[in-house]
Design a protein around this nucleic acid. Structure first.
Lengths: 362, 362
DNA sequence: TGACGTAGTTGCAACGTTACATAAAGAGTA
DNA sequence: TACTCTTTATGTAACGTTGCAACTACGTCA
């Protein structure tokens, strides 16, 4: 059954300590024994028991990532970022998703605490500030991606959602739209509320006579976008919005497809703006204007922040890394892209880019 | 730092054994002590050290899932199926993805072996038959999803890809198409080869004068579908196919969007058939006819199979569960759905369903 | 020659948990 | 009273690993 260090030692004709040294301080092992141990390991197919090592060492190079909805493209990109950031430094990463279920989120936290991971990145669902602070006090470092949970003890990677909403609003106003609709769940999700607030700010600042209606969707899936679009189509034509701003690209794509099938011209009749700039935005039937949220980079930043915290214990310096919003203009708001601007590309300022022929791969 | 069973025991005024019994054989603990222990646990926020338990017990209720491409919708559905199957029985599940990189696949296997998981479900990339058989001999049960790796030692959950390809081919022939194109990577991936083989069989059986061309795509992403479609558009009009069969829905959706933007009518000019029937197929700009592969159910089946193997050790009965193909007809091949048929719904026969107004949510 | 240094090797204890054997305290019975 | 039986509690050893102190062997140098 379990081949252990002793079996390897016996076969190689050395002591268990030497086998351990072979792994942990190879410079202490003479070349003859080094070879013998290597051969024995290969012959037995020995793989060290991580539990025992962890028990002895008190810790292991293991981190965890808890996502809201692993199957949304945004989170896939995010997780790749985290993974890449920590893999380079030799850490193992365990995934899990809370499936937007607060109970599951807590049980995943328990599981990872039982496994004594050294740190975790979490995209939180519930209000778990206390739980996370307790974890940190027990030596499990945490980094939150998303709203900061009002803790001054936990590092976070956040995005300027108000700025993103404002960019979207300004853009729609600029192309002459005056009946705006927001598709999201601003009552339950802080991010949605911020995006809506940003758009509303833009409207107020414009001094124009512009209305903003809100259509509540549940989960930010394509399905929800379809439902919302049908709700819009069922309105008398005079009351329909001339532009929608969706809380993410999935909702936007769903709505877009319904509009197209109903014979509505995009963007002439209804302009559509999404959020996130996931792959599907660029690849939609009408390429989507959207607020770019750099999921991969945010994941990388979270992973790096986590490693920094782990590697300097005692240093309780809380970082709060803010990513800036950036608008990517495509055909769903400006049918024929008019001109190109060299825009501000720094990630900390709200900015804008035009993409021509965006359906083509780069 | 680490609160242990001893701290709890000290606070509760009992021995460490009693605390252990509290968790593992509560019927042995008297009600007075039971309460005292419970209080102490709550006060200290004690969470048992899984590594130590695992070291002592020799195993833990932990399983692993290794995916090819966690961010493809098909795999998301699959993983939810596995997760649901094992969660009900109290098992923890660790995810990881190999990102279609054979080296990463192997390193993930090492990691899970080091953590002494009791079993794993894997969607394999490389030819890792030997590695998996070795794992089984060391007591880590394996279930493969996908081609059986020609092992008579490892259980598998497979799908009738030849049958799926045949269904697609028959359907396209039936609606009068005679210039078929297959979009996939049949040279590298067994599944793609089988799907193409199935379509070719259908063509040969039909006795019609029908051509089948193959356009090779790399990774089965939307991006690859876009590239392939552009390749088709660059062909002289007379040489273009009048139908395409894509190796998965992502490729089909990418191609579909390019065609639409180029002013090509779907399905009049080019009929499109996808594979998998993921969410996006139904939600595409033109809802997609596709071969349904029940990802969620296949994941569940794999999870259940794994649990069965673990729970009856010694029983080396290898199961090979085959899922049957099923065609879902939507607008991308028949613009106006003509009729409804009550078709064979069993999962083990190739069959067909018509969906009317498929863009609407159920 | 003896003291010292260095490279290589090893025995031992400990990490936190749990299964098992054993003990203690009543409770019931003859 | 002496015994058995039951219920509840505890001491001990072991799981596989590794850091440390201790030890050996072999040079080197005064």
């Amino acid at each position: 059954m379990g081949t252990s260090v002793k079996d390897v030692a016996a076969l190689a004709g050395v002591s268990a300590s030497t086998v351990s040294n072979y792994f942990n301080r190879p410079e202490l092992v003479g070349s003859a024994n080094r070879k013998r141990v290597a051969d024995a390991i290969a012959e037995l197919g020995y793989v060290p028991n991580e539990s025992a090592r962890q028990l002895r060492a008190g810790s292991s190079k293991t981190l965890a990532l808890i996502l809201l909805d692993a199957w949304l493209p945004f989170f896939s990109d995010l997780s790749r970022g985290v993974e890449d950031a920590v893999r380079d430094h030799g850490w193992s990463l365990f995934f899990s998703n809370s499936n937007r279920d607060p109970a599951r989120e807590l049980s995943n936290l328990d599981m990872f605490e039982a496994h004594r991971v050294q740190g975790l990145v979490i995209v939180p669902q519930g209000l778990i500030k206390e739980r996370l602070e307790k974890l940190q006090n027990r030596g499990i470092e945490c980094v939150v991606v998303g709203p900061t949970q009002d803790s001054n003890q936990i590092s976070a990677v956040t995005f300027d959602d108000v700025g993103g909403g404002r960019l979207a609003g300004e853009h729609l106003l600029e192309i002459g739209r005056r009946r705006l609709a927001f598709l999201g769940n601003p009552h339950n999700v802080v991010q949605s509320a911020d995006r809506l607030a940003g758009m509303t700010q833009a409207v107020e600042a414009s001094g124009t006579d512009t209305t903003v209606m809100t259509i509540t969707v549940k989960n930010l899936t394509v399905e929800d976008g379809i439902e919302a679009a049908e709700q819009i189509l069922s309105m008398p034509e005079a009351e329909r919005p001339d532009a929608i701003f969706a809380a993410n690209d999935m909702v936007a794509v769903g709505a877009l497809n319904v509009f197209l099938r109903a014979g509505i011209s995009i963007p002439e009749d209804i302009a559509v703006v999404g959020y996130d700039d996931v792959q599907y935005a660029r690849q939609a039937a009408v390429p989507l204007t959207t607020v770019r949220q750099p999921a991969y980079e945010m994941g990388r930043a979270a992973g790096q922040q986590l490693l920094e915290q782990i590697e300097r214990p005692g240093n309780r310096e809380v970082q709060n890394r803010l990513f800036g919003a950036h608008l990517v203009v495509r055909d769903s708001t400006i049918g024929h892209v008019p001109a190109r601007t060299e825009s501000d590309q720094t990630s900390h300022a709200a900015s804008r880019t035009f993409e021509e022929n965006p359906a083509l791969p780069a």
